[in-house]
Design a protein around this nucleic acid. Structure first.
Lengths: 213, 213
DNA sequence: TAGATTGTTAATCGATTAACAATC
DNA sequence: TAGATTGTTAATCGATTAACAATC
């Protein structure tokens, strides 16, 4: 049977399922139906079943799914139970927050070190993570076999940093810069962009309150 | 002719076009072809033309589009040229960053005030923005006719804050909490969620490096 | 058994891409 | 004119949803 990759949409819903399942009352039922999950999360029930089918052993008619199994299946599929080391480049506003953010560990990600070109912050520490000069990136990432890189530099520098990461062996890149990165096909990029989000929200207000529809 | 809403996908690409057009050499050609934009941005050329058709007057065969017009059309469509006032609720890690972020102004958004329940920060100021108790949210938002709210509170508090925003007249909500918010149909919610992004990246690494495919 | 629930197959829907005629 | 480029119509693709048989 051919390997079927999990779609981005399905993956993005997984943390929602995980949250929901973990928030279920501790002494409650051992099983849960996709129908009930869908109702509570305001999703389509077939969609929930298809999503769950991607990660688990399936449920039983009339009974539903075993909550505990579902939780561990989802965590396994998302890699939330084994830690990936990551590096972050660009300790500006956003970079600093990500370094200070405590929620990554339970998502299986550990930012082990950060890089910046700004001499005045190089050598300092944020939340226990050292900030090193970008010139050290290659040697550190290749030696530590870092697989994940988080880009929080400005638009202009993003592609250069990306190239450096790729050369250093990084294969998964989380890009917060507002540019489309050019990478070889064996490197995965996920873009997260505040401006895109604002575009959607702001356009909604423009359309809603404009007089010349 | 019926009004045709712009798809989320198209809207999310708009800032990319805008960046690209603004970065074009100042003394350069007055026109640009969708073909060239698509090549440079690594997009499909028909897609670029369809996107641009949603906002502008169209281009001319052989000539292309007028750069200057395109820029102003996109800015207008995104509402980047008229300022919307917004409020932010939850001055934790992420909330603080958003308050300090200087990039919103050029996207037509101005966070005018923030709210938090934490007495030790209420009354202080971040980047010129006052932090007020949540108990003041209703009176301030309704009096100032605030239309946009940014939710950066924890998972548990998000729905309550959302309800309060809706009651106060806010119609566009940018939600960073990892829950699906329940809102009336005349309120627009855009979700931005770090955990979803990490799910996608982390699953890529799991699949790529797992032995038992 | 009856009915709730699963999982599969088919239909729908929307976005992207391909083909091509119109135009400067 | 010839050819680059636009814009439209049709085809493709993937995700969501509906219908329904299987099962406990």
């Amino acid at each position: 049977m051919a390997f079927k990759p999990i779609s981005t949409q399905t993956l993005q819903r997984m943390p929602m399922y995980l949250n929901y399942l973990k928030d279920l009352p501790v002494g409650g039922a051992a099983n849960i139906s996709a129908t009930m999950m869908a109702d509570d999360l305001r999703l389509n029930d077939v969609q929930v079943r298809k999503d769950l089918a991607m990660v688990g052993q399936g449920g039983r008619p009339k009974i539903g799914y075993v909550v505990k199994d579902l939780i561990s299946d989802i965590e396994h599929c998302l890699g939330f139970n084994n830690i990936d080391s990551a590096v972050l480049i660009g300790v500006g506003n956003l970079g600093r927050t990500l370094l200070e953010y405590e929620g990554f560990s339970e998502c299986g990600v550990d930012i082990v070190v950060a890089f910046d070109v700004n001499q005045s912050i190089v050598g300092t520490t944020i939340n226990g993570k050292r900030i090193l000069p970008v010139s050290k990136l290659y040697s550190i990432c290749s030696r530590m076999k870092i697989k994940m890189g988080i880009i929080t530099v400005g638009t202009g520098e993003a592609q250069g940093i990306c190239d450096l990461l790729v050369k250093s062996g990084v294969v998964a890149i989380w890009n917060f810069a507002s540019v489309r990165l050019n990478v070889p096909s064996n490197v995965f990029v996920h873009n997260d962009n505040m401006t895109s989000s604002l575009a959607v929200l702001s356009n909604y207000l423009v359309e809603r309150f404009s007089t010349n529809k």
